[in-house]
Amino acid sequence: MNIMEGAFVINIAVCLKQVPDTSEVRLDPKTNTLKREGIPSIINPYDAHALEEALTLRDQVGGQVIVLSMGPPQAVQSLKKAISYGADRAILLTDRVFAGSDTLATSYILTGALQKLMQEEPIDLILCGKQAIDGDTAQVGPGIASRLGWPLLTYVSKVEKISPQAREIMVHRKLEEGREVLRASLPALLTVVKEINEIRYAPLPDLIRGATYAVEIWNNEDLHLDPTQLGLKGSPTWVSKTGTPPLREKGEMLGKDQASSAQIASLLAERLIPDIVVPNR
């Protein structure tokens, strides 16, 4: 393939979510929604791997990486970070009417933005993380693929080959007991697992670019989406109640009375062996 002519390049869109970094997340008991204040935000780790894969493919084949995120205005931080890894362009979808969207509404909004983007330039590939660590739903990527009618390849652990001219991609998908190799036509949507790559340590100029970059902001005046399909209104699922998992019963400390290690070992074995050793299983 002749890269220099620029005839075959790929444009890749990456959907990423800014998520709270720790599991110290609390719910607002009044609204049953996430309270995100005071918790450091990061790019969802799986999405970071999606971005890395997009950058690697772009560096190999040529083209552009455009990063999209739906979220509150503060999510520009994660998009600037994406630029600092080397993405070419970043767009934040933010609007009050988007707030409270579940996965169904979120995939609707992202799809709307991707379609708008595709009026400007073609997109060959969309990459997402396999799931977000805050919601763990793994639904938005498949939702976008369904809405666009594109092939969906989830849990991708390796991009074996991408051929912009043949309009096809070959990937490995991680399964419970191994993997499978699939070929799909382009355009396609991939969700990726962490094993797919190692995240780069970007060159300094990309970091400076990230620090200076002005993220594009799109709201619903840009997207013209159906208001009944947005936000809480457009979300069929809702949290009816929340609780904490039952605490485990208070445990037993063995050998507090200065017993020797051998005595404690014997004591522990006494406790465990009847439960554990199931003969000839």
């Binding site: 890269i3 220099m4 772009r58 560096d59 040529g62 080397g86 070419d88 060159p203 100029p205 990309d206 400076i208 670019r209 200076t212």
Partner: peptide
């Protein structure tokens, strides 16, 4: 070289 050009293009507008 293409990759390098791409980078330089990306970095053209940043403060040095």
């Amino acid at each position: 070289k293409a990759m390098k050009d791409k980078k330089l293009e990306r970095w053209a507008s940043i403060p040095h």
